[in-house]
């Protein structure tokens, strides 16, 4: 299962390295969202600095939707899904591989977005450990739930509109948790942030388990 997962993750990341869709389209989109927030909320009133954690994670969520759509779009053409099914790879491995590839892309995006927030919103960055752990756990949560709901929406004519409706309510706890944990870290009171990391860890584990068992049947019939 792990070997299959690494194979799939490697394939997806190689595709990304060669096509650079995430780099050339998703990342600029995320930065664009940051700039749009500045237009919407007057940048001189320090609202931006206060709301940095929330805005940051909203930008990540929207970008994650695009990254997830992309992750399944590359399987949609030329009967790739059938090829995946015929490949004999463990469906749980395919799921984990997709989660890993999306997580890796999102982590790079989050790092760059963090620089963007620090520069554009002049937010002070503190509490590095909590920030890093929160990012990893939240990203795993988003990728795991997103991949499961992504395959639910895959292969349907309405997939672009369906995925946000299904996924965003489910990810509400992750948005709350990651935002609160970031706030705690930036305010210099990291002890308030760790319970949220715990909650998101439970969320991520639940969805990894659900995906490992549910991905196979869903891949079969789509």
């Amino acid at each position: 299962m792990i070997r299959d997962a690494l194979l799939i993750a490697g394939k997806d990341l190689r595709l990304e390295l060669r096509s650079r869709v995430a780099l050339n389209q998703v990342l600029p989109f995320a930065l664009l969202v940051l700039v749009l927030f500045a237009f919407a909320l007057d940048p001189d009133k320090s609202v931006l600095t206060q709301a940095t954690p929330g805005l940051y994670w909203i930008a990540v969520l929207f970008s994650a939707l695009l990254a997830l759509q992309r992750s399944f779009a590359i399987e949609a053409t030329d009967g790739n899904r059938d090829a995946l099914r015929l490949s004999g790879l463990d469906p749980a491995g395919i799921f984990l591989g997709k989660v890993m590839a999306v997580s890796a892309q999102l982590l790079v995006l989050e790092a760059l977005l963090g620089v963007g927030v620090a520069v554009l919103y002049t937010s002070r960055i503190e509490g590095w450990i909590l920030l890093a752990v929160t990012s990893v756990v939240a990203t795993a949560s988003i990728a795991a739930a997103g991949t499961l709901y992504g395959v639910l929406a895959a292969g349907l004519r309405v997939r672009e509109t369906l995925l946000p409706l299904l996924l965003l309510p489910v990810l509400a706890p992750v948005l709350i948790g990651s935002t609160r944990a970031f706030e705690a870290a930036l305010n210099g009171s990291p002890s308030e942030g760790w319970p949220w990391v715990g909650l998101m860890s439970i969320f991520a584990s639940l969805y990894v388990v659900a995906g490992i068992f549910g991905f196979g049947p869903l891949l079969e019939e789509s």
Binding site: P169, V170, P195, L206
Partner: peptide, 16 residues
């Protein structure tokens, strides 16, 4: 996943 989701959402919102 509906009820598990509702429980997690409820828990997180309550905590929040």
């Amino acid at each position: 996943l509906l009820v598990p989701n509702v429980i997690i959402v409820r828990q997180s919102v309550q905590w929040w």
